[in-house]
Amino acid sequence: MNSSNNKIGSAIALALMLIAGLLLSACTKQSPNHDPAALAKNAVDQAQTKYQASEQAAYAWVPAKVALTLATGAFEAGDMETALIEAERATMLTEASLAQAKVEQNAWLERFPKPPASTTETREKP
């Protein structure tokens, strides 16, 4: 009697501990990912870093800056949903602008008008 009671008791205790542990881990994992403020802050920070990189590359885009400004404004006003949406939009646009910067590093040279035929030959000689 005593031993079976103990067994049931310890089984329940074990189950409780397991569930508690699972919940705890779920909660700690959850807070940075699903707390709206933390999510938004993370997204705004990421957008800001990326945008600064595009500025340094001299390839910043107007709509990226607009989205970033909306995101930071919304974040400061406590509107985490808008902050998140606009920050993600800013990041997406900035990634496209950085891709453009990469392509243009060499592409522009091909685009410049070639000299008239008579001077073309002397051009490539070192």
Binding site: I12, L16, H34
Partner: peptide, 23 residues
Amino acid sequence: MKIAFTVLLTIAAMISYSVMAEE
């Protein structure tokens, strides 16, 4: 005990549902 167990399960189910329903 049983009641406590059920409550915990319910909470767990609610959390997992809220995670799934974010789309």
